[in-house]
Amino acid sequence: MTMLHTVNKSPFERNALDSCMSMANKGSKILLIEDAVVGAVDKNTHAEKIKGAMSDYTFYVLGPDLQARGIDEGNVIDGVNVVDYAGYVDLVAETDNVQSWL
């Protein structure tokens, strides 16, 4: 079984990403949406968490939410995949179920 975990809170504000990573099994996909996209910026103080977990999870970030916050895709951590809404739908469709870390 492969799970998709979505996180929608900024790591600067809430522990949703930490909680997610403390529970998600290896091989899971983690998608950052809404305010959580700020955590996908390279060199932010939470970036090391994501970089350190790349071998366990595949990370995604929602492009429209980056754009809405003025974040250039070029500043996203290497290895984090930027997806659009259609890509979001694909992730939901290709995984067995979804847990939202609100």
């Binding site: 079984m1 998600a24 099994n25 847990q99």
Partner: peptide
């Protein structure tokens, strides 16, 4: 987490 993986539907 293992139980979660085994679900048909997860409501958050």
């Amino acid at each position: 987490a293992d139980l979660m993986d085994d679900q048909d539907v997860v409501l958050s």
